[in-house]
Structure formats: C-alpha cells, structure tokens
Amino acid sequence: MFSQSFLQLNTIFISILIEAVPFVLIGVFIAGFIQMFITEEMLAKVIPKNRCLAVLSAAFIGALFPACECGIVPIVRRLILKGVPLHAGIAFMLTGPVINPVVLFSTYLAFGSQWDMPFYRGGLSFIVAVLVGLIISRQFKGNQLIAKGAVRNHCDASGKQTFMKKFAGMLRHAADEFFSVGKYLIIGAFVAAAMQTYVKTSTLLEIGQTEAASHLVMMGLAFVLSLCSEADAFIASSFRSTFSTGSLVAFLVFGPMVDIKNVLMMLDAFKKRFILYLVAYIAIFVFIGSLLI
C-alpha cells in the first residue's frame, strides 16, 4: 500500500513523537501550574523593572529551569500572558532548553567527560539569550502574542479559589495547552522525519567545507533534525571528527533555540514578524559567537 521509504519515514516520525511527547506533557503541566498558581504580583516582585536586569535575571532563571525545547514555548506564552515582559520571557525561553542540568550533563558525557563543551554550550547560549533579549526590549513594544493569546484571562490565580479548584483548573489548562501546541509538534516531527528520510546528509556535509560554511551547515542540520536538546549532544559528538568545535557549538546552541518543531510551536504563540526577527537575531549571534570559539 505504501512504499517502504514512506513507512520508514512514518516510523521515524512516530519515534520522534514518542520521544518528545513526555516532555511536552511536562511543559503543558507547568504552563497549567503557572496559570493557576502563580499570580501576576508574584512575578512582578521577582522580575526587575530595569530592562537589562530583567533580561539577565530571566536568562538566569531559565538556566536553572529544566525544560526541553518542546515544552518551553507554552510555558513562555503563559508567562507573558501573566505579564512577564516580552524580553524577559524570550531570554528565559532561550536559556531554558539549553542550560539545564540534564542537557549539560548529557553534553558532558557525549564529549568525553570533559567540561569544555558544556561550558561553551552554556556560555554561548547565555550570551545569545541576553543579547537577543536586550535587542527585543528596544525593538518591540507590547507582548507580540497573537490575538487569541492576548485575550486577558478573567479567571486565574486570584487567590479566592480553593486548592482543589485550582488544581482542576491546572489540569484543564494543561489539556488545552496540549492541543494548542500538539498540532505543531506533530507537523514539525513529520517534516523532520521526512527530511531525515529524503535529504541526503552527505549533501549537507559536502557544503560545509570552509569554516564559515561549516557553521551554517551545522546550524541548518540542527534546524532540520529537530532533535531533543537532551539527545542532540550525542549526535553532535558523532560529527566531532568532521567538524570544528566551533561549528558543533553552533549546532548545540542553535538547535534547542530554533528548530522545525519549536518554530511551528512559536507560530501558535507569537506574531510572524516577531518570530522572523527573533530567529534572525539568534542565527546571527550564534553564528558570530561560534566563529569566535
């Protein structure tokens, strides 16, 4: 009925989903939790008014926060809806999936139990997150969420409800979030699987002959493969002998920030023009930063 290669595409597609869905579920639960239990006043207290400080502290909180790039978008959308400034939300979104204990430890293991790779990876993504956050704070006013998300919730963590009610609300929000994010995850996983099945990796690798080109190729590969940030270090390390450290860092920093899956998920939350700028800034900074390594 179907060709063998389509069935293989399908198998890769399902396997990416099986790998990503648990993390998305964790993400939507956290988003639901934020919706029901975190008040705007609490956030206002935590996030500094000063723009630079806000970006810095958000990037730092993101670094402590264990999330995967599949799960972070709904969380950030929810935070911004709760009144977290856009630039802080974005800084948080960019460090969250890269700098966290699980990801850094897997990077440490993948690269010969040495700390230089996790250090480069963490360092560059922190710098990129802060720079992008700062530019965004200058350039964009408003929350840049698409209209349906921008509707104020009249019912949230106003301390009046009982814990049980809040808990039920959290579960309900988690389900909503799953449906709103899930469709992009599914489409993204499918596109990534198709790319893996039909695009010859050797074509990409042949392009990456010069230093600068190899950085772009690794970033392109990171985008296309859409690997989970917890698994990508093992893939990157398999390219270690072919590519320079700098271009591998580009792969490891760019991938979790921007890939097919999470760009599609961002489309669910943010305006297109904003995403375009965001992706462009990330790409430029990762590129320049990784060339310096």
Binding site: F2, Q4, S5, L7, Q8, N10, T11, F13, I14, L17, F179, G182, K183, I186, I187, A189, F190, T197
Partner: peptide
C-alpha cells in the same frame, strides 16, 4: 493532524530501518 499519528502509529506496519535508509 491529531488523528494522523494515532492512525499511523496504531495501524501502519512498523518499518524496520534497513538498506533503504
């Protein structure tokens, strides 16, 4: 979009990666 992976996962034969890949 939601029905597809379910149908694909439950009803399509699971391919084994082979020489095609």
């Amino acid at each position: 979009v939601f029905a597809f992976p379910l149908a694909a996962g439950l009803f399509f034969p699971i391919a084994t990666l082979d020489s095609t890949i």
